[in-house]
Amino acid sequence: MLSSSSIRVLLVDDSALARGLLRSLLEEAGIEVVGEAVNGRQAVELARKLRPDLITLDLQMPVMGGMETITEIMHEKAIPILVVSSEADAEKACEALEAGALEVIAKPDYTPEQAGEFVRKVRLLAGVSVITRIRRRLPETSPNPDNEWQWQPSHQYLARNYRQAFAIASSTGGPQALTRILPLLDKSFPAPILLAQHMSDGFVEGMVQWLSSLCQLRVKVAEDGELLKPGCVYVSPSESHLTVTANHRVALRPRVEGEIYRPSCDHLLCSLAEVYGRDAVGIILTGMGRDGAVGMQAIRDAGGIGLAQDEATSLIYGMNQEAVKLGGVHREFPVTALGEEMQKILEMTPAGYLQALGRSSA
């Protein structure tokens, strides 16, 4: 991570009031603002000229909007981008992550918590190495844009009593990774998937709507007390922590003041280990920090399966690296292979899958 005094930031927002607030928060933290842009076209020109360490970007702007601006910058010479936008643009903000932005955050006010989160994000993301992108297409799927869903058991499911549950833990770069995993799973996927994705308050619902448009699976915000069902992805609200109960229902734990990770990956993974034991499958993806490492170890200790996104395909090899170091990961895979591995786990017993992993690594 760069020191605050060496970070150079370009502010992009058509609101002088918003730019003034962000400038004051950054300068109070000792971070240099090297320029301001009032529209996307100006942002592209200043990014080319000033080469800042980070760009903060609003999505709603004249001349050139935020999405087009991200695409221009990321396809010309990539610079880390933090989207700072209204919660009303939550779904579009998540699309901005797919276009190349690193994270999204709500426009802060003068509350210490929001101001502190904004400055912390700038410090973390300014040192991230990003690469110039080439245009590509998402996997061909039959999306479920209206989130209309009724699970239809496959013949494979009817032939076997499935008991597994999957938990995915991710942070920075996670939404982008999820678009390489979830769209590859069929709507008859015979197990529930629980997701703890670090996300600023107000943006989870937008991410759910965005993922729903890409997936055959049902994707929804988890609700306290609901029964877990196969073929459904339960996404933790950022305002609470997603866990599961002994009778396979959702339990949302309140967030404690001062907690850095929201929602907690460790809370989810540890509860899955306790309830499902050897039938628990933990998958940890890209992200900063150590959240999830303890939970992945708990799953492995319970006899379950632990997989991780590998370094080469991770935007930030942090959380997954810590889980590997602690010993909670059986094998790392490229993000594009994780969906296939999830299917393989369901075709075998947990013990059979782990034996196959052992043979393939021998």
Rank of each mutant, 00 (worst) to 15 (best):
F203G: 00
L182D: 03
G202K: 12
A165L: 09
A222F: 03
Y234W: 09
R120M: 13
E140I: 12
S213G: 11
L242Y: 08
S154W: 05
N147L: 08
G202R: 02
G173N: 00
V233T: 12
L178P: 06
I134M: 15
T172M: 10
A191G: 05
L185T: 07
F166Y: 15
V122A: 12
G127Y: 09
H241F: 11
I168D: 12
N147Q: 09
H241M: 08
A196G: 02
H155W: 11
I193M: 07
V244M: 14
G225I: 04
V208T: 08
S129D: 13
L178I: 12
L228E: 07
E239P: 04
L217G: 00
P175C: 01
M199V: 01
Q152P: 10
Y162M: 11
P190H: 05
D201C: 05
R123G: 08
L227I: 15
Q176R: 14
V221P: 02
A165S: 11
P143W: 01
S236C: 10
D186K: 09
E205T: 14
R133V: 03
S240F: 05
I168V: 13
L182F: 11
A169C: 13
S213M: 08
G225H: 05
Q156N: 10
S200T: 05
D224N: 14
A159Y: 08
L228I: 06
T243F: 09
H241I: 04
S236T: 04
Q150F: 11
K121C: 12
S142M: 09
R135Q: 14
P175K: 00
N144M: 08
L124C: 09
V122K: 13
F166R: 02
K229F: 04
F166N: 13
S212F: 00
P143Y: 03
A196F: 06
G231C: 03
G202Y: 06
S240V: 04
M199D: 05
Q176F: 11
T132M: 04
A222L: 05
L158N: 09
D146N: 14
E239M: 13
I131F: 14
I134F: 13
E140N: 09
S171F: 00
S240G: 07
E140H: 13
C215T: 06
S213K: 10
I181R: 00
S188I: 01
V130Y: 02
S154F: 04
P143A: 02
L124Q: 11
L124V: 13
L178Y: 03
L138R: 10
N147R: 14
P145R: 15
F203I: 06
L194H: 03
N161R: 11
L214N: 03
T132L: 08
Q216Y: 01
Y157R: 07
Q216C: 05
T132I: 07
P230M: 07
H198M: 00
A167H: 05
L178A: 03
R163V: 15
L217I: 08
S188K: 06
R137N: 14
E140D: 13
A165I: 10
S238K: 01
S236M: 08
S212D: 00
D186H: 11
R133K: 15
T179H: 04
V244G: 03
A222N: 07
W149I: 04
N161K: 13
Q197C: 02
